[in-house]
Design a protein around this nucleic acid. Sequence first.
DNA 1: CCGATCACG
DNA 2: ACGTACGTGATCGGT
Length: 877
Amino acid sequence: MEKKLMLIDGHSILNRAFYALPDMTNSKGLHTNAILGFLNIMFKFLDEEKPTHFAVAFDLSAPTFRHEMFKEYKGTRKPMPEELREQVPVIKEVLKAMDIPLMMEEGYEADDLLGTMSVIGEQEGYQVRIISGDRDLLQLATENVQIRIPKTKGGGNVVEDYFAEDVMETYGVTPKEFIDMKALMGDASDNIPGIPGIGEKTAAKIIKEFKSIENAYEHIEEVMPKRAKNKLEEFYDQGVLSKELAAIKLDCPIELSFDDAKLNDIFTGEAYQLLKQLEFKSVLKRFDGEHGEEFSVNLKKVSELDEADRIFSKAKKCKAAGLAVYHEQEYTSLGLCIEGTDTFLFQTEGFLTRDYLIGQAGELYRTVPRVSMMNVKEFLDELSLSEDDKSIFDAALAAYLLNPLKSTYEYDDISRDYLGIMLPSKKELLDKKKSIFEEGKLLPEGEQIIGYEAYVACACIGPLRKKLMETGMLSLYEEIEIPTMVALHDMEVRGIHVDRKALKEYGDQLIGRIEELRELIYKEAGEEFNINSPKQLGVVLFEHMKLEGGKKTKTGYSTSVDVLEKIEHLYPIISYILEYRQLTKLKSTYADGLANYISDDERIHGKFNQTITATGRISSTEPNLQNIPARVELGRAIRKVFLPEEGYTFVDADYSQIELRVLAHLSGDKNLIHAYELEQDIHARTASEVFGVPIGQVSSIQRRDAKAVNFGIVYGLSAFGLSQDLKITRKQAQEYIDKYFETYPKVKEYLNREVEKGKKEGFVTTMFQRIRPIPELKSSNFMQRNFGERVAMNSPIQGSAADIIKIAMIRVNMELKKRKLKSRLILQIHDELLIEAHDSEVEEVKEILTREMMSAAKLSVPLSIDIHTGNSWYEAK
DNA sequence: CCGATCACG
DNA sequence: ACGTACGTGATCGGT
């Protein structure tokens, strides 16, 4: 059998992987992207090459001169980012656990070890493959030594392969001559001086002709061009030195024997454990079952009624249970886990009807102190649950509070983060299948999913509650989030009435003008194209028509509003485009988009999501009812089709500047608090202070600017952002900011304090102890860190406001229900509540809204609301 | 499936 | 010198 030696240039590949993959951490916060990328590259080449021998080379100490690590920085000696540095010892540990030899020698660089090993290998009759991202290694290529350079190219991964002849073909020089070329050119990042004034082109020309520096020097008179000749003559010694530096050493003392490098089974138990801690599911899949006492749920299938009865009555006596419920048409599957030990699976069959199963599940809530599910909101109705049921536990909601930055809160996420158990996800188990059912039968994968879900829901109760307690968020969870879930559920069920016909008419009325604008745009452009395509539009505007103000972004020209508005006064086509954009947006997203969501009851039942935002706000989908047009009249008009049901009236209440009031409270700034105590126009007041004019003489422009500054403060102000918004210079923006902070000094102190706290603790909190982790503050990337600082300033403000409206929402909703009113809460739009009030209850509803919203939190400034009624959402706002 | 754009607070 | 306002979701075009 052919002997094949594969070598990996450790730091080089690790470095490649680090920059190729997006930032990634495991649940303990360890950065893992480079390790994962390295392993994927390693496996790819192992699969491809099937080597008999394998080793990885590393520089022993921190990389010194000739190293890829620094080249990414084009010669500037920035240190390795911390995010990468911490991964270096870990990958070494993983490789050791895989029984893969590491080549490291004090005083030698990885290149030298690779070079020496490849020479010996070739002498011993091996085929040698060297995997590296570093082109310098090309000098090692021979007939039997291939350099393989993985690259990312246009989304895909490609490999450049070089035997000696490939180097010849690509560069026109032999691998050995490659050294001379580099010696002539020099390389700042490797500290190789080279010959000044000789670059890649000249170097190639000289070496092609004379084969080496020495030979070129011997024939110095023939060296062309003249300039190169003179330089070579003058700096010859430096060139020879450079050659020494550029040449990879081929004679290192290497302790590693080929026996040691023999490729053994890398799928060891030790490696399995490490990869599990790293949470590399995809890599773990390569291991066959025997290594990790694989976690499994002992799922007991129950099909007899008397057995089911026995289990449910036993369950009713327990302390904690977990449920997982899935429906498909008339079929229902129910997973039940008792005390985190016994897990059962029930399905609709025989005497086990849906009514029985769901009825029993609902019963558990009456006797078991804690019943846990993953997303209870969807099941509140069928389980007959309300905000009064204290046994409700929602694992997803608890996990969201503990880390609101996750994208999903499925059982596998929670199991990994809070139980330390890696489970296959729903997605992985189902693979391509879209449902856990097939032809009314629960698939075997479905059984597993339900088993895992019920188990995790139950087993995580303890850990999650403990963490909620430790972080001081238990009462936030119990008193705000759980009741909020009920209120959201109520709103989803109720929906909002939409006049289908009026919506259609609204859309139709846009068509004519859209067509007209399209023609005008084609006429101005002198060609027809897809106006909706930013790419085509950019080309037409800035290339064909040669309008000024082009360029931006990597994908082409930016055609966003702020770019177009700058040149709007110069060209009529720009106004047409802006209007066209506005109208088509209204047509496709709102007129047509909303129409698709109107149910048979003529209402839209959107979803309100409680585990999406990083700050604690609610989000709205299918459709998004929180971004219905309001700012521009034409768009705002769409609110005329949102109507109360016959006999009802809309009552709409929104907080007035809740975020600024929260800021006044949190900062304790006397001046700001005083302004609100006097119920002054805060923007005018700010303008007066910042621009130094009496409050009565503030111009509308000054007020507008001050308003932008106030907004900016809440967003974590930067001079640049403000200057963009107000279309002023950065210097001016900075002056506004400085004056603002002079006026409200405590605000500045407060914002700084939050940033400091974020840096120290890794997170910031709201008035009600909601946490927002800010990993960006630890980033070595300037921009990321900057972003983190703004987040630290904004999150407590936006988050506290979100807490407050949740409280108001809960109380309003409960009060309406408690008083058995016909009126109902139907929408929440961040600082606004919309109620469909029975005509006879309008005054009572207004009182409830006013009282509950204003008293939702006790701040050092009053909370104030605007409240309106109307026969459409348009009128009520 | 991602980026650009734009709707909201 | 860097290249930014905070938080969302839907639609479209283009890969």
